[in-house]
């Protein structure tokens, strides 16, 4: 390992970019919420035949979302350059890289499927993550301890973050699915895709997330074998990675089990996603284990 010279002024710039991404996200969130309100109060004639066209507020919202993503991306890259390594070695860095990937995955997916209706969820979720990162998890750039100096860190963590990105989009779909299925605010939810469509798209995202998560689990075991001399030791973080994997396997089964699709599967997907969040926050911060890298 060569000596890395940390660039602290660049890391300050990075923080500036990450923080300003929040402003753009907040703007996007306001615009998307405005759009939802408009949709739920508009008469049928507004929407008929125009379902695919972007309204002004929605278009402005997506411009803001793109700007937020680019600004955040710049912040993440600068953080990496400042630290002289990949920018995902502590909780602050996981968070900003994670928020960036969630936005990127969502914006890319938009090109393939019409997922506009979860834009509020995505922008709000990314905003919460970055806010938590900056206000709760922030640490100065540091060199990493020897156990973390491994290319398995790069692979294992980046794939875990990507999996989380896919799970997040699916979670947004589950939430909107359950809202729509509850039968409330019919005027608004009638404008959204059908329940079956939502369920299918959520399934696709969870499938990709699950494959990536399985890879994370294997890569983690290989890394553990290198660093701690056993591939699996039921360390708290390993336990939760396992629990999450089993829960998503359960979700996939539910989707193939008569009587378990629909609301039940959506709830199960949400519970699995809550464990992902739990694993990242509570387990990282408060549970004792070998994986001490929150940096706090």
């Amino acid at each position: 390992m060569t000596q890395v010279v940390l660039n602290e002024s660049l890391s300050q710039f990075s923080l500036l970019f990450v923080s300003s991404a929040m402003a753009f996200l907040a703007l996007a969130l306001v615009l998307f919420s405005f759009q939802l309100v408009k949709l739920s109060t508009a008469g049928d004639e507004v929407v008929a035949g125009k379902a695919d066209r972007l309204s002004t507020s929605e278009r402005a919202g997506f411009v803001m979302l793109w700007v937020a993503t680019l600004v955040l991306g710049a912040g993440v890259v600068m953080r990496g350059i400042a630290a002289g390594r990949v920018p995902w070695a502590n909780m602050y860095e996981f968070s900003i890289s994670g928020a960036f990937l969630i936005l990127l995955i969502y914006l890319t997916a938009l090109k393939i499927r019409d997922l506009r209706f979860i834009a509020t969820f995505i922008s709000g979720f990314a905003l919460v993550i970055i806010f938590a990162a900056v206000s709760l998890f922030y640490v100065e750039v540091q060199t990493v301890m020897p156990a973390l100096q491994s290319y398995w860190l790069v692979i294992h963590v980046v794939v875990a973050i990507m999996a989380t990105g896919f799970f997040s989009v699916a979670a947004g779909l589950h939430i909107f699915y359950l809202l729509k299925a509850s039968g409330k605010a019919k005027a608004l939810f009638d404008r959204f895709p059908t329940l079956v469509q939502m369920e299918r798209v959520a399934y696709r995202f969870n499938v990709v997330g699950f494959v990536l998560w399985s890879f994370t689990l294997i890569a983690g075991a290989i890394w553990a074998e290198r660093a701690w001399h056993r591939y699996w030791g039921w360390d708290t973080k390993e336990v939760w990675t396992f629990i999450i994997w089993v829960l998503y396997a359960g979700y996939l089964h539910a989707m193939a089990t008569r009587g378990w699709t629909g609301k039940r599967a959506a709830w199960l997907g949400l519970v699995a996603f809550l464990s992902v969040i739990f694993n990242f926050t509570i387990v990282n911060l408060f549970f004792k284990g070998l994986h001490v890298y929150s940096g706090l």
């Binding site: 390992m1 000596q3 890395v4 602290e8 100065e140 540091q142 060199t143 301890m145 020897p146 100096q149």
Partner: peptide, 16 residues
């Protein structure tokens, strides 16, 4: 090997 390059990390081991 200790980190000597970065003031904030002086004394932090970077390699054994």
């Amino acid at each position: 090997v200790y980190d000597l390059a970065n003031r904030a990390n002086i004394g932090q081991p970077i390699d054994f």
